[in-house]
Structure formats: C-alpha cells, structure tokens
Computed example of a mutant assay.
Amino acid sequence: MKTFLAIDAGGSTLRATWMSGDGNLIRKETLEKNANFLSAGEKEIENILRFLKHKVPMVDALTLSMAGIDGKPEFDKVKALCDTIFPTTACRILPDADGAYYANFGIEPGVLVICGTGSIVLGKDEEGKRVRSGGWGYLLGDEGSGFWLVKELFRKYLAYCEFLEERKACFSVFEELFPGNPRDAFVYFYQPETRKRTASFANRFLSLSDPYVIELHQSGLKSLATQVLSVLRRMGLKQGRICLMGGVFSNAQAEDFFRRYLLGKLSALEQEQISIVAGVKNISDAIAQKMVGETTRSLDGGTE
C-alpha cells in the first residue's frame, strides 16, 4: 500500500498529512513555526523536512506547498532539499498559491481567491495555463487583506496624530494596542515575523461594525474583485467555480459583500454558469486526498 505525504508550509504554521493509498489517514502534524523559505532560511527548512521524514520514513509520493518559492532560485533549492531528504520519493513542489489551488481544484479549471494576511487571485484554464493577479506583497498590493486594512487604517491614524486627519472612533484600537509614541508600532508593519499578528488586528476593527472601517475595507475588496474579473477575462472561463479562501472571508459581512459585489459584475449568463463557493479548510488534507484520487484514477485507466 502506497503512502502519500502532503505538506502545507506557510509563514507561521506548517501542516503535514500522511495518507495511505486507500484514503485512510496515517498521521498528521502541525508545527507552529515559520516555514516560508525566504524568511525561515534554507537550514530551517532542511531541519523541518528531516523532522517530517523521521515521523514516517517510507513515503512514496510527496507534494510540498510552500510560501516563499515563487522565484526559480528558491524553488530549485527546495526541490534539491526534497530530493536529498526523500531520495526514493516522487516529489512535487508547488508555490503556496498553486498548492492551495491544487487542494481546491486538482487539475480542473477555476479561480482561487485568497484573502487572509495577504491577497492573490490565481486561475487556470482548460489547458492548465496559469493566470494570476495581485499577490505583490504587503508593500505593493494585497488589497482587501487583513494586513492591508490595518496598514491603511494606521496611515489614517498617523495623519490624525500629525493633525492632518479628523479623529475616528476606531483609532482607539491603535491607542490601546500601541500606547505612547506611534513610531513604536513601526516594527509591526516592517518586520516579516510580526506581519501575521498585525493582520490579525483586522478582526478587532471589523468587529466594531464602524462605518468608516467597513467603507475602507470594502474599497479594498472591490479592488480584489476587479482582479478576479481580470483573471476571468484573460482565462476566458465561461463556467466553473470561484473558490474563496483566507481569514478575511471568515468575516460574514466581508464575505457577503465580496460575493454580492463580484456577482453584480458578472453577466446574467456568467451568474448562471459560475458559482462562488467556500474553499477547503485544510490544505494538506485536501492535497493528500487529491494525490490518492490521482493514483486511483490512473489505476482505473483514467476513469472517474
């Protein structure tokens, strides 16, 4: 019986799922540590992979979805690590957005919208051609994301501190989080290791139901929806699914607004043919299930 290993390696948490060829769960691991290749570094990633190898030594196929390997040099280094640590294992390496896409769609066409700490839209057409929009990071984009919202509100707060903006009720959150000099809070916006915590402050602001916060956030969500439309047009997708993932969509009001706004931009025919659905909850579990399914279909001669 074959053993499959799926790894979802992000900037603050790594999840691993081992599954047998008949779809039974063998083991799961969750590590609360940075597994983004760019910020964690090659040595730390090597240590993590060796730790996982030790847990279940014999693995037939591995799919690793990892943050920080969009660039070819980083991708090649991680591929070399996997080939060294898992020498007898068939290894498939995916950037994290592609891993999330695979978890939701497998090889089917569709559009994935991720809006959590950051944001990105990734689509693939019938031929597997990759089309993306956004995902430029916290300095250049990430519209609608948790970090983006907190950053934009903090910019308004700094303007207020310099008598350039009227005081807003929501600024009390910053005064509670960062009492004293606002400059003391800069580390939360510039240090990679604090970025997820900074993004989590978005929940505090959204829970206020403050019209000022809601309007600002909706402007970011509109930009994100525009990116989805760009991907749809470039793909030529006429029917299929748009999957929503990420912590921002766990806020019911934000998700409802995004769905309604995006649907309103689709034609009547597109609204009938394209559905907007929630994405998978656990990427490593979903990838492992997809790996088992692929093997089953190949043994059945490609039939469902």
Score class of each variant (00 low, 15 high):
K156F: 14
E44W: 06
P192F: 03
D96Q: 10
G71M: 13
D285M: 06
V213I: 02
L25Q: 10
E304D: 13
G144K: 06
R130M: 14
D210A: 00
E176Y: 11
V56F: 05
S275V: 05
L5A: 05
G236W: 08
K151I: 04
I7A: 03
K265C: 13
G21S: 06
D22P: 08
L164I: 13
V59R: 01
D83I: 10
E165P: 06
L149F: 01
S230I: 08
V277K: 13
E255K: 15
F186H: 08
F201H: 05
R197P: 11
Y102T: 07
Y102W: 08
N203F: 08
E175S: 01
K265E: 13
G71P: 11
Y188D: 09
S250H: 12
L266M: 14
L14E: 01
S298C: 08
W136V: 04
D83C: 15
A268L: 12
K124W: 04
D96L: 11
G144Q: 04
L49K: 03
R132K: 15
K151P: 03
I114M: 10
G123R: 10
G11V: 04
I283G: 02
G301C: 10
Q289F: 04
G293Q: 05
L122Q: 02
L177P: 05
S39Y: 10
A90M: 14
D60Y: 04
K290E: 09
I69V: 07
E175V: 06
F178Y: 11
R234Y: 05
F105W: 05
E143Q: 09
W136F: 13
R130V: 15
L94K: 04
L269N: 15
A40M: 03
D125E: 09
A9C: 06
I69F: 01
T226Q: 13
S223P: 03
S223N: 07
F75M: 07
P192A: 07
N203D: 06
V228P: 00
G116M: 09
R234K: 14
N104T: 07
R204Y: 01
R195I: 04
F201V: 04
R204C: 03
E152C: 10
D256Y: 09
I26K: 03
F154A: 08
W148E: 04
S65Q: 01
L52R: 01
T84I: 09
D76N: 12
A61W: 07
L140E: 10
V231A: 01
T13V: 15
I283D: 02
S250N: 14
T88G: 12
K156P: 11
D125F: 07
I114R: 07
I287D: 00
N34E: 10
A103I: 05
K156A: 12
R234G: 05
V131D: 12
P211N: 00
V248R: 02
T226K: 14
F249S: 02
Y157S: 08
T88P: 14
A199R: 02
S65E: 00
K168Y: 12
A40K: 00
G146N: 05
E162K: 15
T198E: 02
G180H: 07
Q273C: 10
R15S: 01
I120M: 09
G11E: 04
W148M: 04
L31Y: 13
N47E: 12
N181Q: 06
D83Q: 15
R259V: 11
L139M: 14
A202V: 00
K124I: 01
D125L: 09
